[in-house]
Deep mutational scan, measured.
Amino acid sequence: VTTYKLVINGKTLKGETTTKAVDAETAEKAFKQYANDNGVDAVWTYDDATKTFTVTEMV
């Protein structure tokens, strides 16, 4: 189990959160659900070296 981080650069929601998951795909599903629940529709990137997902909402 690995800890993954999500950085949110949204128009109305900004911040960071983490989740523990067995792999990046599982973490991504959890983070996308979190973003969807909070109304963030954005572009996703992932950095495997830092285990960090970044979501940037387009203006």
Rank of each mutant, 00 (worst) to 15 (best):
V1Y: 14
T2K: 11
T2H: 14
T2F: 13
T3G: 02
T3E: 13
Y4P: 03
L6N: 01
L6C: 09
L6W: 03
L6V: 03
V7A: 02
I8D: 01
I8P: 00
I8H: 03
I8Y: 09
N9W: 13
N9H: 11
N9T: 08
N9R: 09
G10C: 15
G10Q: 05
G10Y: 14
K11T: 11
T12Y: 14
T12R: 11
L13V: 11
K14E: 06
E16Q: 10
T17V: 15
T17D: 03
T17Q: 09
T18V: 08
T18Q: 08
T18I: 08
T19E: 04
K20H: 09
K20G: 04
K20Y: 10
K20S: 12
A21F: 05
A21S: 04
V22G: 06
V22F: 09
V22M: 09
D23W: 02
D23L: 03
D23H: 03
D23S: 08
A24L: 09
E25G: 07
T26I: 05
T26K: 05
T26L: 05
T26H: 10
A27H: 00
A27E: 00
E28M: 14
E28L: 15
A30N: 08
A30H: 14
A30R: 11
A30T: 14
Q33F: 06
Q33W: 05
Q33E: 09
Y34C: 14
Y34S: 03
Y34G: 02
A35W: 15
A35I: 15
A35K: 03
A35T: 13
N36K: 14
N36A: 14
N36Q: 14
D37H: 09
D37G: 09
D37P: 07
N38E: 07
N38M: 15
N38K: 11
G39N: 09
G39L: 15
G39A: 07
G39S: 07
D41C: 11
D41Y: 11
A42K: 06
A42N: 07
V43G: 03
V43M: 09
T45R: 06
Y46I: 01
D48W: 04
D48F: 05
D48G: 06
A49D: 10
T50C: 02
K51E: 01
K51P: 00
T52F: 01
F53W: 05
T54Y: 13
V55R: 03
T56F: 08
T56N: 08
E57A: 08
E57R: 05
M58F: 11
V59A: 10
